[in-house]
Every structure is written in structure tokens, then in C-alpha cells.
Simulated assay, not measured.
Amino acid sequence: MTEKLWCMHVIGPDDVHAAPDQQTAQAWADELNASIARRMSEMEPDEDTPSVRAEAAEWPWSPEAHATNLAKSLAEHVAREARRRLTLTPES
């Protein structure tokens, strides 16, 4: 039996981002959903405002495609975390 491969599926734009495991996919989805909620609270949405949410899902394509996309997803996550830390660091 092959091991399940996981991703964060962003519903709305229908993007998928490979994740190392289900727990990480869910954590990334939770982070993105919280970010979306913060941004939406700063707006006045109307009927034209797109609906976007993320969830953990099984990877829909080949293991090779997962491996390729995983490298990109991890690099994006590291960069995002670095930017977040910089914005939280008080100036010296």
C-alpha cells in the first residue's frame, strides 16, 4: 500500500501546495484561513467578494509531482515565516 501524500488545497482559486504530511497541511490551511479572516475583517465584503478557504487534502497527482511541488511549498513557507518574524521583531 502506498503512503498518502498531502497538500493544502486553497478552494476558490483551486490552488494546491504539497505538504510533507497531513498535520502540516492542516497547520498551513489553518494559518491561511486565519490570515484570510483577518483581512476580511478589515474590509466590507459584498456579493462580489470571492470566497476563499483552505483545507488539508490528499495530493491529487503523481508522487513525482508531489516531490517537485513540495520543494517549492517548503521554500515558500520558510520565506513566509522569515517575513513574519521580521515584522514581529522590534527595532533595535
Rank of each mutant, 00 (worst) to 15 (best):
E3A: 09
K4C: 00
L5N: 01
C7E: 03
I11Q: 14
G12C: 10
D15G: 03
H17V: 06
H17M: 12
A18K: 02
A19E: 04
D21I: 01
Q26R: 14
A27D: 10
W28T: 06
D30Y: 07
L32I: 15
N33W: 08
N33F: 09
N33L: 10
N33M: 08
A34C: 03
R38N: 00
R39S: 01
M40E: 04
S41V: 01
S41L: 08
S41F: 00
E42F: 00
E42N: 06
M43N: 02
M43T: 01
E44W: 05
P45M: 03
E47D: 11
T49Y: 13
S51F: 11
V52D: 07
R53N: 08
R53T: 10
E55N: 07
A56N: 03
A57I: 02
E58M: 02
P60A: 06
W61E: 02
S62L: 12
S62E: 12
P63K: 10
E64Y: 08
A65P: 02
H66T: 05
A67R: 13
T68G: 09
A71H: 08
K72N: 09
E76R: 15
H77D: 13
V78S: 10
R80L: 15
R80P: 05
E81D: 12
A82G: 07
T87D: 15
T89Y: 10
